[in-house]
Design a binder for these strands. Structure first.
Length: 116
DNA sequence: CACCTGACCGTGG
DNA sequence: ACCACGGCCAGGT
């Protein structure tokens, strides 16, 4: 029943992310008990069995970029939500090409990454 | 029942 | 510093 524990674990951790902070898939995976299982973390969230109670928008990439395409309604939508929560965002630099998945906006993990 | 893909991450060349 | 590949786990077809 590892899968049930794992998925539930992921949801638990994600729900535990304090407002104004963000966590990475790897971090959630590590908290779930499998640091290499970051992939399944994304699966669990994509599955999103409990929409509305799981702040998936607080989960970002290791690079600080938001999830591509999927978004729960749009990458910019996620940016608005995170920004509304008090998350610090770093606008894309024209000179510095950053691998931004969403809008090019990166979350300031150095400031907002949730510390378990 | 077996195969394949997938919201990722880390390391090597 | 950048590009590429592999690995791990779970869920769906």
């Amino acid at each position: 029943m590892t899968e049930l524990n794992f998925s539930e674990r992921v949801y638990e951790q994600v729900c535990r992310i304090p407002r104004g902070s963000v966590a990475t898939y790897g971090q959630i995976a590590a908290l779930a008990g499998n640091p290499r299982n970051a992939r399944v973390v994304g699966y669990a969230l994509h599955s999103n069995p409990k929409p509305g109670i799981i702040p998936c928008h607080r989960v970002v990439f290791r690079d600080g970029s938001l999830a591509p395409g999927f978004a729960f309604g749009g990458p910019e939508r996620q940016r608005e939500l995170l920004e509304a929560e008090g998350i610090s965002f770093i606008p894309p630099k024209d000179n510095e090409s950053k691998p931004a998945g969403a809008d090019g906006w990166l979350v300031d993990l150095a400031r907002c990454q949730w510390k378990a």
